[in-house]
Nucleic acid binder design. Structure first.
Lengths: 113, 113
DNA sequence: TTGACATATCCCCATATGGGTATATGTTTT
DNA sequence: AAAACATATACCCATATGGGGATATGTCAA
């Protein structure tokens, strides 16, 4: 078996930085494909393909408007990611706190010299 | 160019469900590889390979103990994921709220009958 | 030393990728 | 009707994958 398809779920879809960029742009409002092409500086087919992946996991929705297609964000499928990562928040905070302690200690030792 | 390697960053590393499982197990404490093999029901080489990916993005750390290697979690690389997703939290909450409103409305209409 | 145990690596496979270029599909304007 | 515009799809490529089986590496025990 190969790697899971990017359309398998939001985790996979969002692993690609360009797709996160697209979502970041759509967070500001509806956009036509060509707008995204200009903003991202990517080839148009590339953008269409990324949009397709995002559509297949439900992260974006489309609406026809004349000869344009307007894409908008649907953030709901990101919730499982948030829920999963949130459980680790305390864990890295503890580690950062521990690191801060070490740095503080080093600083004190320095001051004592 | 092909897809970004799973070792490129935490986003990619964590897109694989098995690797999330491994992190979930390690969140409870240090574990030897064979423990993980038993708990996950995966082939040992598979587990070693997943652990390698996690190691390369810094999500786990290893410690030798006799002929065993004990892996432990380092959640810090998950923070960027949390930070990114967090920005969308309000967005999906609004959408869910809107959905709740619709459901409430439907319910009222039903009651009126 | 020899054998058992624990892990990592190697090689093979099918599959899916992201990017590129060319083209099909559909809509508006002239 | 024809030309221009907007978008999606088809095809090709190099690359990386997750899984499988065999084996190398390293450590402990008899």
């Amino acid at each position: 078996m190969a790697r899971a398809p990017t359309t398998a779920d939001a985790f996979n879809a969002v692993a690609e930085p360009r797709r996160r960029q697209i979502l970041d742009l759509l967070a500001r409002g509806e956009r036509a494909v060509n707008d995204l092409v200009d903003l991202l500086g990517l080839a148009q087919p590339l953008v269409s393909k990324h949009l397709r992946v995002l559509r297949e996991v439900g992260l974006v929705e489309v609406r026809d408007s004349g000869r344009q297609r307007l894409y908008r964000l649907n953030a709901a499928p990101l919730k499982p990611i948030h829920d999963w990562v949130k459980n680790y928040e305390r864990s890295w905070e503890e580690r950062f706190a521990a690191l801060d302690d070490v740095l503080e200690e080093l600083k004190s030792e320095e001051d004592e010299r």
